[in-house]
Computed example of a mutant assay.
Amino acid sequence: MSDIDAWVWWLIGAAGLGIALVVTTMPELGMLAVGAVAATVVARLGGGAVPQVLVFAAVSVALIAVVRPIASRHRNQRPQLATGIEALKGMQAVVLERVDHEGGRIKLAGEVWSARSLGAEQAYEVGQEVDVVDIEGATAIVM
Rank of each mutant, 00 (worst) to 15 (best):
M1C: 00
D3V: 00
I4T: 12
I4Y: 01
D5M: 01
D5S: 06
W7F: 14
W9A: 06
W9Q: 09
W9V: 05
W10E: 09
W10T: 06
L11C: 13
L11Q: 00
G13N: 10
A14Y: 04
A14C: 07
A15W: 05
A15V: 15
G16W: 02
G16H: 05
G18S: 11
A20M: 15
A20H: 13
L21A: 15
V22C: 10
V22Y: 15
V22A: 14
V22E: 09
V23M: 15
V23G: 05
T24V: 03
T24C: 09
M26T: 08
P27D: 05
P27N: 06
E28R: 00
E28P: 01
L29S: 07
L32W: 08
A33S: 14
V34K: 05
V34E: 03
V34D: 02
G35P: 04
G35Y: 06
V37L: 15
A38L: 08
A39R: 06
T40F: 10
V41E: 03
V41W: 02
L45S: 05
G46K: 03
G46Q: 00
A49S: 04
P51S: 05
P51K: 12
P51L: 02
Q52W: 00
Q52H: 02
Q52R: 10
V53A: 13
V53T: 09
L54F: 07
V55H: 05
A57D: 03
V59C: 00
S60V: 00
V61D: 00
A62D: 00
L63T: 01
I64A: 04
I64W: 04
A65N: 01
V67G: 06
R68N: 01
R68I: 08
R68T: 12
I70E: 12
I70R: 14
A71K: 11
R73M: 14
R73G: 11
H74N: 14
H74K: 12
H74C: 12
N76T: 13
Q77C: 06
R78Y: 03
R78W: 04
R78H: 04
P79Y: 06
P79F: 06
P79V: 03
L81F: 07
E86G: 09
E86T: 10
A87Q: 03
A87I: 02
A87W: 00
A87H: 03
K89C: 01
K89V: 14
Q92R: 15
A93C: 04
V94C: 13
V94P: 13
V94Q: 14
V94S: 11
V95F: 13
L96G: 11
V99P: 07
D100L: 14
E102Y: 00
G103H: 05
G104R: 11
L108W: 11
A109C: 10
G110W: 15
V112Y: 02
V112K: 05
V112G: 01
R116D: 00
R116C: 08
S117W: 09
L118T: 04
G119D: 15
A120L: 14
A120N: 13
E121A: 15
V126K: 14
G127E: 13
Q128G: 12
V130F: 13
D131V: 10
I135S: 13
E136D: 15
E136I: 13
E136A: 14
G137N: 11
G137I: 11
A138P: 10
A138H: 11
A138C: 01
T139P: 08
T139N: 12
T139I: 10
T139Q: 11
A140D: 14
A140E: 10
